[in-house]
Amino acid sequence: MPFFVCLLQSTLPATMAAMVPFVLAALFILFSISLYNNLVRSRVRTREAWSGIDVQLKRRASLIPNLVQTVQGYATHEHAVFSEVAAARGALAKATGPAASAAADGFLTQALGKLMAVAEAYPALQAAANFAQLQSELSDTEEKIAYARQFYNVNAMNYNTRIASFPGNILAGMFRFEPVTFFEADPSVHQDVQVSFAAKA
C-alpha cells in the first residue's frame, strides 16, 4: 500500500502536466463535434419543416381543379378568372424554395379570392353541397399552411441565428452552412409575379 501511494505521489504531478494539453484537445474536439452535430440537426429540422409546408401547398393545389370545375359548372363565362387561377397553380407547382413558393402561394391566394368573389354572384353555386365542402377543405388547408409556415419560420430563425452567431459561425463558414430564407411573401416579388401573369394573359 505505501509503495503504491509513493508511486502515485511521485508520478502524479508529472503525468498530470503531460496530460493537460491532450485533455484540452480532446475537450475541444468533443465540443466541436457536438456543435457541428447541432448545426446539422438544426438544418435537417428546417428542411423537414419546409417539407411540411410543401405537403400542404400540394394539397391545396390538388383541391383547385375540383373547385374550378365546380364553379365552371355554374359560371361558364368567367374565363379570365379561371385562367388566372390555372396560371397561379402552375406557377406554384414550378416554384422551388421558400421565397419563390411563398410568392406563388400569395399569388394563388389572390386568384382564389377573385374566384370566390365571382362565385358569390351565383346563388345556386353557393347552395351546392359540393362547393361548400370544397370551400371548407380549402380554408382548412390554408390554416394548415399558416401553421406549417409558422413552424418552418421558427426553425429557420433558430438555424439562421445559430450559423450567424459565435462559435457556430466558424464551423458554418468551414462547412458551408448557408442561411435559409423565410417563407413569407416579399411584396416586390409579389409584384413581379403579377406583372408576368398580366403579360401572359
Binding site: 429540422r45 419543416a49 411540411g52 400542404q56 382548412d140 390554416e143 394548415k144 401553421y147 406549417a148 409558422q150 413552424f151 426553425n155
Partner: peptide, 12 residues
C-alpha cells in the same frame, strides 16, 4: 380534432 391537428403542425 381539426384544430388540434393544425396546432400540432404548428408545433411540429
Amino acid at each position: 380534432r381539426r384544430l388540434l391537428e393544425n396546432l400540432a403542425i404548428g408545433a411540429g
